[in-house]
Design a protein around this nucleic acid. Structure first.
Lengths: 101, 101
DNA sequence: TCGATAATTCGACAACCATCAAAAAGATGT
DNA sequence: ACATCTTTTTGATGGTTGTCGAATTATCGA
């Protein structure tokens, strides 16, 4: 239940942990960087190219990122396009700052 | 090679990953929150009280946090007191923001 | 020096996780 | 219907890691 456009969204304790774990893997971090660097949503097939991992592994990582709420999956015909959920990321940064800084 | 008092410190890729992993464990996150909430350095013995883990496990976690650079260990007689390294944490937050936001 | 307290190290174990190949599922075009 | 392309699922495997008990090191007070 994210609030409309105004308020920050609040992350559950569980989601904070999911996000932290999602960020703790180098491959997922690279995936997120790629998604962040580009405005448009990227299909799996493109992220697979040059990533050096199997489709199965990529699918696994995308699932983790989606469970963490960090990416949004949109089906488009054959493809599944992923986009970064910046509000969730920002909420996580705010949470870290509030809890630890 | 952290810069003196002015500039932000730059984290190596390896340290970023260490920090992310350190934050990805619920117990370590709680430890950091406790250290953040208090100004003074806290000895292991105090963190052990009510934490529900063995001394060995706590020692392991503190080692991980220290390797990540998130805490500083100071020996004081019998005790080892830990304090949060806020600059490192801030550098991590800045890094996340720069890479992903 | 002895006993008690604080913390680390060691060895072992269970749970978790990243990874892949192979098979399956879903979608498109012919 | 068929062949092709994209993604997911399944099953298995090797590596990592959180956890503890027991032993060890270090420090203090009596």
């Amino acid at each position: 239940m994210p609030v409309a456009a105004s308020g920050k969204l609040t992350l559950s304790e569980e989601q904070v942990q999911r996000i932290a774990k999602a960020l703790a893997d180098a491959r997922r971090y690279e995936i997120l960087k790629k998604l962040s660097a580009r405005k448009a949503a990227i299909p799996c097939s493109e992220m697979l190219a040059g990533a050096g991992i199997s489709p199965a592994t990529l699918s696994h990582h995308m699932r983790e990122l989606e469970l963490a709420g960090l990416v949004l999956a949109e089906k488009d015909g054959k493809f599944v396009r992923y986009s970064l959920q910046q509000p969730v990321l920002r909420a996580y940064l705010d949470r870290l700052k509030a809890d630890l800084a």
